[in-house]
C-alpha cells in the first residue's frame, strides 16, 4: 500500500499482480461513496482479477478510506480528475478496464467520456447512469444520510437491523458529510449527461441486483450507451459486490476473456446507430 500525490490530493493506492502481464489490460477499481473504500475490492474480486493475469489498481477516492479529505472539491469532475492524475502518477497510459461500484461507476463513466482513449471497457456494478437529475438525486440522498446519522435513534435502529459493523461504518462517514462541501458539490457537478453517454464507444457491462431500486435503470442504460449489456443478478440488492463477489468476479472475467478474443467487436458495434 502506498500513498501518492495525484494532482492536489494524496491518495491511498494498493496494487496487485504484475502491471502489463501477458499484454492484458490493467484493471482499475473505483469504489463507491461514503463508507466505501478500496477494501470493498481488496476483500472481494481484486485477487481473482490479478490471478487472471491483470495488473490491478485500487485506490481510496478523495475523502474516503485513508486518502486525504480536503474540505472542498467534491464535484464529479474532481473525482474523475483524481483518476486521471492517479493513472498519470502510476505511468498507466494504455487503455485500462475500469470497474465502478455504485458512485464509482459515475466516476468511471465521466472519466471515459472525457478521456476515451484511456479506457478499453467498463464494468458498472449497481451504478445509476450520471444523466438527468443525477446530481440532485445523489446530493439529496447524501443529505438524507447526513440527517439520519445525526439522529441517535436512527443509527440505533440501523445497528439493530444491519449490525454493529454497518452502523459503525456509517457513523464514520460523518466527517465527510459534515465537514466538507460534498453535498453541495455533488449537486453542482457537471455530469456527462445523455450526449456524453451516447458518445461512449467502449463496451460496457452493467450488473444490477434484482432487488435493488437501481435495476430499473438497466433498460435506459442500454438505450443510452452504444455498446452496453446489462445483467440482473437474482436475489441481490445494492450491495451486490460485497454480497456476491464470486458472481461479480466470474461475470467480469468471463466478459474480459470474451471481448479480448474478439477485439473488433467494440468498434463494429459502436459504428452501428
Amino acid at each position: 500500500m502506498t500513498s501518492l500525490r495525484a494532482g492536489q490530493v494524496r491518495l491511498n493506492v494498493e496494487r496487485l499482480g504484475e502491471p502489463g502481464t501477458a499484454g492484458r489490460p490493467p484493471v482499475v477499481l473505483v469504489h463507491g461513496m461514503g463508507p466505501d473504500s478500496l477494501a470493498d475490492y481488496y476483500f472481494t474480486i481484486a485477487a481473482g482479477i490479478a490471478a487472471a493475469g491483470h495488473g490491478v489498481v485500487m485506490y481510496d477516492q478523495r475523502g474516503h478510506g485513508r486518502s486525504e479529505r480536503p474540505a472542498t472539491g467534491y464535484r464529479l469532475e474532481d473525482f474523475s480528475a483524481d483518476l486521471r492524475n492517479l493513472l498519470d502518477a502510476l505511468g498507466i497510459h494504455r487503455p485500462a478496464v475500469l470497474v465502478g461500484n455504485s458512485f464509482g461507476g459515475a466516476v468511471a463513466v465521466d472519466f471515459a467520456v472525457r478521456h476515451p482513449h484511456r479506457v478499453s471497457r467498463i464494468l458498472l456494478i449497481e451504478s445509476a447512469p450520471p444523466v438527468g437529475d443525477w446530481p440532485q438525486r445523489m446530493s439529496g440522498f447524501l443529505s438524507h444520510c447526513a440527517e439520519t446519522l445525526c439522529d441517535a435513534q436512527a443509527t440505533d435502529r440501523m445497528e439493530q437491523e444491519h449490525g454493529r459493523f454497518v452502523a459503525r461504518l456509517a457513523r464514520r462517514t460523518r466527517p465527510l458529510l459534515d465537514e466538507t462541501t460534498l453535498i453541495e458539490d455533488i449537486a453542482a457537478g457537471r455530469i456527462p449527461g445523455e450526449d456524453g453517454l451516447h458518445s461512449l464507444a467502449v463496451p460496457v457491462l452493467a450488473l444490477y441486483g434484482a432487488d435493488s431500486a437501481l435495476a430499473a435503470s438497466a433498460p435506459a442504460l442500454e438505450r443510452l450507451l452504444p455498446d452496453c449489456r446489462t445483467v440482473i443478478v437474482p436475489g441481490q440488492g445494492h450491495t451486490l459486490l460485497v454480497d456476491a463477489p464470486r458472481t461479480v468476479g466470474a461475470l467480469l472475467l468471463g466478459w474480459l476473456r470474451e471481448d479480448l478474443s474478439r477485439p473488433e467487436r467494440a468498434t463494429a458495434r459502436a459504428r452501428t446507430p
Binding site: R66, R168, R172
Partner: peptide
C-alpha cells in the same frame, strides 16, 4: 480485529500491506 480492536476494513488492508 473488527469487533475488539475496532479496525475498519481499510485498516485491515493496510495491516496486510
Amino acid at each position: 480485529f473488527v469487533e475488539d480492536l475496532d479496525l475498519e476494513s481499510i485498516d485491515l488492508v493496510v495491516l496486510t500491506g
